[in-house]
């Protein structure tokens, strides 16, 4: 499990080293995209802990969720509707959800309790 963590660290370091100028107008979109990416990664972690991780689902979820979040925000801007607020709320809720499930999974793992069956369906 250390290799993906190395990837994360390399990504952060790369982001720190490589200068990037996101145009001010796109900052909102990238923010939503980052939120979606964060949600997907946490969802993947949770799925991993629950033993039902699927690489294809995870990868497609990462790409599609990230792009779609940014796209939806852009569309909302075109329509004059603050759609990004909805995206922020949904992704935030999901992130909290995922974190809480991860926490429980970890606690359960520590207590060596049997895993209850939970409906699958995570991206």
């Amino acid at each position: 499990m250390w290799l993906p963590l190395v990837g994360l660290v390399v990504g952060v370091v790369l982001g720190l080293l490589v200068g990037v100028e996101i145009p001010l107008g796109f900052v909102k979109y990238t923010a939503i995209a980052v939120l979606a990416a964060l949600d997907t990664v946490l969802g993947g972690l949770r799925a991993q802990l629950e033993g039902r991780f699927d690489l294809v689902v995870f990868t497609s979820g990462f790409v599609v969720n990230t792009c779609f979040a940014a796209l939806l925000t852009a569309i909302g801007d075109l329509l004059g509707v603050d759609v990004y607020l909805g995206a922020v709320i949904v992704f935030s809720m999901r992130i909290f959800n995922n974190v809480s499930f991860i926490r429980r999974d970890l606690l359960r793992g520590l207590a060596r309790e049997p895993e209850p069956v939970r409906p699958a369906g995570d991206s």
Binding site: P4, L5, G7, L8, V9, V10, G11, V12, L14, G15, L16, V20, I22, T30, A33, V34, A37, L38, T40, V41, G44, F58, T59, F62, T66
Partner: peptide, 11 residues
Amino acid sequence: ILLVAGLLVTW
């Protein structure tokens, strides 16, 4: 994927 995610978040 995590590399990309880290990159995005950091940026």
